[in-house]
């Protein structure tokens, strides 16, 4: 990375390193100090945004990186939420254990979805996953006392090390920690051999196979990881609302998730984050323009599909070519 003439690479490296460290510390400081500047409402929106960032990134793994038409995101989101709810309410499992357990359960379900994905092509996979989501929703509705049906499963205040997490600010710190951790892990995964294998499979599966990549294992891995990430988001969602109901995981939700990904750009992790932020914050800013949400939303999506198929990530890349390697697995 040394491109300054006349200086040694170690010196520039040190300068760059110091600068990055300062920026990172300031960013961290800002993030940690955020609750001081926000009222309850704004903090809630920030928390919701963190959740949707996870949803968006998780969905993008299967949709963008692997390139599979798996529409199970809302279902996995629901599984994460209901697992947490049932574990905490019906089985009295503390949040500290319920969260990782839900992630695990969602990851397992993700794997199970990955299995038929090996056989089914394109639209068949889309339809099966769509239908699976609806079937799960039917189960939540008819789950009797376990899921409390449509009136919703209330979730009492979670406790972490006996410390209740009640206010939006407290939730924020927990969410921030979980989100940063998962995003960091995902980023590393995407840059690793596994991430590269995903892209190779997406581009040309047979060619990838001929290079010695066994598609099946990597495909399953993608579904598993996606399930884990989205499941974590679902668990946090349950805590945020304090109450989960089947309607929150219907096809409308799926469309929302899809729009996050498309706005950010398929196969672009930072884009997914940006997409989630925009689409969660914007409706709140535009709160009082009633009646047109569905239309604005679908027009936005159509516009993105037609004119910005690479999403915002694509636009960023056009203006900052240096980001290309960082943003795109292309």
């Amino acid at each position: 990375m040394s491109d300054a003439i006349g200086s040694t690479s170690i010196e520039t490296g040190k300068r760059v390193g110091l600068r990055t460290a300062m920026i990172a510390t300031m960013a961290l400081g800002a993030l940690l100090a955020l609750p001081l500047l926000m009222n309850d409402y704004q903090q809630y929106i920030v928390n919701l945004t963190l959740i949707y960032c996870l949803v968006s990134v998780g969905f993008n793994i299967v949709l963008g990186y692997l390139g599979q038409l798996a529409f199970a995101n809302a279902a996995l989101f629901g599984i994460g939420a209901y697992s947490t709810g049932i574990l905490m309410q019906q089985l009295d499992v503390p949040f500290g254990f319920a969260l990782p357990s839900s992630v695990l359960i969602a990851a397992v379900v993700g794997t199970l979805i990955g299995l038929p994905a090996l056989r089914l092509k394109r639209y068949y996979l889309a339809i099966v996953t769509l239908v699976l989501g609806e079937l799960l929703r039917w189960t939540y509705i008819h789950g009797g006392d376990i899921t409390r049906g449509s009136s919703g499963l209330p979730i009492s205040t979670p406790k972490l090390f006996n410390f209740p997490i009640e206010s939006e600010a407290q939730k924020y710190y927990v969410f921030l920690f979980v989100t940063v951790l998962i995003l960091w892990a995902t980023r590393n995964l995407l840059r690793s051999r596994i991430g590269r294998a995903w892209v190779a499979i997406r581009e040309n599966e047979l060619a990838a196979a001929s290079l010695g990549i066994w598609p099946a294992i990597y495909k399953i891995a993608a579904f598993t990881w996606s399930g884990a990430v989205v499941g974590a988001a679902g668990a946090l969602f349950a805590i945020l609302l304090g109450r989960i109901e089947p309607e929150s995981f219907n096809l409308n939700q799926l469309l929302l998730h899809f729009t996050f990904v498309m706005i950010g750009g398929l196969g672009n992790m930072i884009g997914s984050i940006i997409g989630a932020v925009i689409l969660t914050a914007a409706p709140e800013i535009l709160r009082n323009f009633p009646g047109f949400e569905e239309i604005v939303f679908s027009l936005l999506l159509i516009g993105v599909l037609l004119f910005m198929p690479r999403g915002i990530g694509g636009i960023l890349v056009a203006y900052f070519p240096r980001l290309r390697e960082r943003l795109f697995r292309d």
Binding site: Y123, A126, F258
Partner: peptide, 10 residues
Amino acid sequence: AMMTVALSYL
């Protein structure tokens, strides 16, 4: 596929 889904919502 998503274009048609977006259309349906529109």
